[in-house]
Computed example of a mutant assay.
Amino acid sequence: MSHASLPRLVLLTDRAQLRLGRDLVRTLRECAHAGLRAVVLREPDLVGEPFEALVREAAAIPGLALLLSRRTHPLAAGTHLAAHQPAPTHGWWGRSCHAVPEVRAAAAEGASWATLSPWGATLSKAGYGPPVGRDGLADVPLPVLALGGITTPEDAAGALASGAHGVAVMGAVMRAADPARMVASLLTALPADVPATTGGAA
């Protein structure tokens, strides 16, 4: 994957938010079928073989690029780092940011993308305070994904109008009765993606 192929919609997982009885891998398959092209696999409580099994299953989903939150893995296309984590020396990676100056700092470190949150009012990112300021976002030198409070196509369109490359979502999809339908709905407001290359570090 490259800067140019960063999808306009990226899903962050949290299986605890899924409706009772919903399986995460099945949900990811359905979302990929609906047009999702990249997922940040979080699930920080999973370690050892349960985590490895999840990575293997997620990495095998056709057309879906796997990014890992805070961790590297040979089956992942890249890594999404927390704000405090040191920048890696190689690979395709992004960073969680909570202000436009942090996005600029991530670009200077060599990040390939950044999330900016909380973009809007959200249950998932409530601990990060009020929505972020966006002044100067259109001029940052890397793709930015608006994260937090993106629940409708209108929200996604508004993020692009404010200078975001695309959107990152978690709760709106994870908590949905039909996650794939929510993905398809959000994609109606976003430009078409270049098909993602799955598997392997860039």
Rank of each mutant, 00 (worst) to 15 (best):
G35N: 11
L75Q: 14
L75V: 07
D14Y: 05
P179S: 00
L20T: 14
G149Y: 00
P141I: 04
G21Q: 01
G94R: 04
L67N: 02
V25I: 00
S112I: 01
L137P: 01
V140Y: 00
L41N: 07
A34G: 11
R15V: 03
P153I: 01
T198V: 15
A189D: 02
A180Q: 10
V194T: 13
S5Q: 12
G35H: 12
E30D: 14
P118F: 11
G129A: 09
D193A: 11
A202D: 04
A105H: 07
E109C: 08
T27D: 05
A201E: 12
D139C: 00
R19F: 01
T151V: 00
R56W: 06
L123F: 04
M1A: 12
A82Y: 05
L6R: 05
T198G: 02
D178M: 05
L116S: 10
W92R: 09
P141E: 00
V144D: 09
L9T: 09
E57P: 01
A168H: 06
R56H: 10
L147A: 03
W92S: 02
A16G: 06
W119M: 14
S162L: 15
G91Y: 02
R56L: 09
D14E: 15
A168Y: 09
T115H: 07
L147T: 12
S162H: 15
P7G: 07
V47E: 14
G110H: 13
P153C: 00
V55C: 10
L75C: 02
L75F: 03
I61R: 07
G149S: 03
G127L: 11
S185T: 11
D178Y: 03
R56E: 13
D135V: 13
A105W: 02
K125Y: 09
S69H: 15
P131C: 06
G120A: 15
M170Q: 08
A201D: 12
A106H: 01
D193G: 10
G149W: 03
A99K: 04
T122Q: 11
G63S: 08
R29T: 04
R37S: 13
A65M: 10
A161P: 04
A172I: 00
A77G: 13
L11H: 13
A201Q: 11
D14L: 08
A59S: 14
P195V: 07
S117V: 03
S5Y: 02
L36V: 08
A87M: 06
R134Y: 01
L41H: 07
K125D: 15
A99Q: 12
R56S: 12
A202G: 12
E30W: 06
S5H: 12
A180M: 08
T13A: 08
A105Y: 03
A177L: 14
C97R: 06
C97V: 08
A114P: 10
P191F: 12
R15C: 01
P195F: 07
G35E: 09
E57Y: 02
V132E: 06
G158Y: 10
T115G: 14
T197D: 04
G94Q: 06
V140E: 00
L116T: 05
R56C: 10
H98S: 13
T122R: 10
E52F: 07
P50N: 05
E154R: 12
V169S: 09
G163P: 06
H3V: 15
Q17F: 08
M170R: 02
V169H: 06
E57T: 05
